[in-house]
């Protein structure tokens, strides 16, 4: 059940906390590198995407202009499409974790689970995320 965490480099601090939370839940996860990416790292990112059964998109103010997040979403959707055509629609999934209210949800975001963690006082999102990752 490896989780590929797709994020913008501007959010690396917050995303590390989320990665640690997933690790505490014993959910294998991986944060791809974001700076000075070499050809080998690029290949590593592609391999990790192919192996991931969940793409966790960290949706923040930086998302709409994030080069890597856009690429990763498009690539993962291609794999979702392949799984759909192979009649294995549950083989992969995409989850949107919204950290900032300034992230404007796009219509296609509503095709997948959206977990709202944008309320700094709220903690219910953690149980929602846990449920979504466990497929409940």
């Amino acid at each position: 059940m490896p989780v590929f965490i797709s994020y913008d480099e501007a959010d690396v601090g917050r995303v590390m906390s989320i990665s640690q939370l997933l690790t505490a839940w014993r959910v294998p996860n991986w944060m791809p590198p974001r700076q000075n990416i070499s050809a080998a790292q690029r290949a590593q990112i592609q391999a990790a995407l192919a192996q991931a059964d969940t793409l966790l998109r960290i949706c923040t103010a930086a998302t709409s202009q994030s080069y890597w997040m856009t690429l990763e979403q498009a690539a993962y959707l291609s794999m979702l499409a392949d799984a759909f055509r192979a009649r294995q629609p549950l083989a992969r999934r995409l989850i949107n974790l919204r950290l900032d209210k300034s992230y404007r949800l796009q219509p296609f975001d509503y095709a997948d689970p959206i977990i709202d963690a944008s309320d700094p006082q709220g903690s219910g999102w953690q149980s929602d995320l846990h449920r979504a990752l466990m497929g409940a």
Partner: peptide, 19 residues
């Protein structure tokens, strides 16, 4: 029936209805 993108469009509108 084979189009994933049509499936996503349908799911997106259903999600918008719910939200």
């Amino acid at each position: 029936e084979r189009s994933y993108w049509m499936y996503r469009e349908l799911q997106a509108v259903r999600g918008l209805q719910h939200a």
